[in-house]
Write a protein that binds this DNA or RNA. Sequence first.
DNA 1: TAGATTGTTAATCGATTAACAATC
DNA 2: TAGATTGTTAATCGATTAACAATC
Lengths: 203, 203
Amino acid sequence: MTRRVNELILRRLPRYMFLPRHFKTEGMDNVSAMYLSVDTGIHPSQIRKDLGLVGFQGMPKSGHHVNEAINNIEELLNWRDNRVAFLAGVGSLGRALLNYNNFSNTGLQIVAAFDINEDLHGTEINEIKIFPLSRFADLAKRMHINVGIITTPRDQAQSVADLMIENGVSGIWNFSRIKLRAPENVIIENIDLYEDLGFSLAD
Amino acid sequence: MTRRVNELILRRLPRYMFLPRHFKTEGMDNVSAMYLSVDTGIHPSQIRKDLGLVGFQGMPKSGHHVNEAINNIEELLNWRDNRVAFLAGVGSLGRALLNYNNFSNTGLQIVAAFDINEDLHGTEINEIKIFPLSRFADLAKRMHINVGIITTPRDQAQSVADLMIENGVSGIWNFSRIKLRAPENVIIENIDLYEDLGFSLAD
DNA sequence: TAGATTGTTAATCGATTAACAATC
DNA sequence: TAGATTGTTAATCGATTAACAATC
């Protein structure tokens, strides 16, 4: 174990898997680092090193087995387990995520949403019910929640996070653009869509 | 000009702006690198260096003017101009983006959508009309399109990109997870939501 | 076998952090 | 003035790329 498997590697791994998935449907059995490189733009050395670090060996001359690549990476990323998410904050972004809810090949599904706006309580978006936050604890207990998604405004993000953590969430996707305080054992994934969508087209 | 303003810096810049926006509403006039650091988790040296690189100076002791920070960064990122986007590929992701269409403080708005599915033609999502691709050239000419958003499957992404480029698009947000060929002067921003949303919760 | 592709080590490159004199 | 914060240079750190012997 020369180096910790860090975030940068984890971010590249899905790309090493989606492409083999595609190859699989085309009936290919093996794929080489070079082949992956052409389509992803990632350097072949990088790919070999990444795959090595996650403990997945290829064979000289023939490369990596497509099926193994898919299986190993899915397992490492925990995409094979079904996990259940609650979303808090049904604004325009929350609404978009509820409508999307298409993380299916990652094993994740949003099953309930929460908001302080009373008008929303009892309504549904994409068949996902919206509840008051007072129901959170109760429902979390019943549904064995794994993941919390925070799409509230800044000023409510921390208290919602606390609530989620109290009720057994082990990972949080934080869209709120504020730095959350949380115990060590809770994984906080900060996501800023503007980094992806807003920054470009300068110059 | 010691170093090119690269992607990493551009990705951090929005964070230097959203926070001052927040401070502004709270009536603060100045903000220091240290202050920004606490909330963003970015190292103060990094912040000073980034702001310096984009040509925006602060003042010893008092820091940076909030208003100037916002203005300078918005200008640099081209968020002050109104720009118009066409979206191609109304699948679940395309649909989610159409419903969201809330990039308003970046100056970008999706104004038309395209799909090969005839059932969708003439329908609307979030008041955005869906057209056949054959109407693309015609509409692009009329509406002075700036940005193309590709949410098609892999195998259609390149031909859609070609169509967009032919019709004057200067930047493309590519969600298709394939590497697009394009002339130098067209900016391709590759976005893989799975990098953000799918990778986490390993370990 | 010959050649392609691997895993791995060493070299390079670039980004982040530390340190500090300058200054409002 | 004294102290906080700047811009910038130097030091560190880590990621990416190059190179190559090993091998199917």
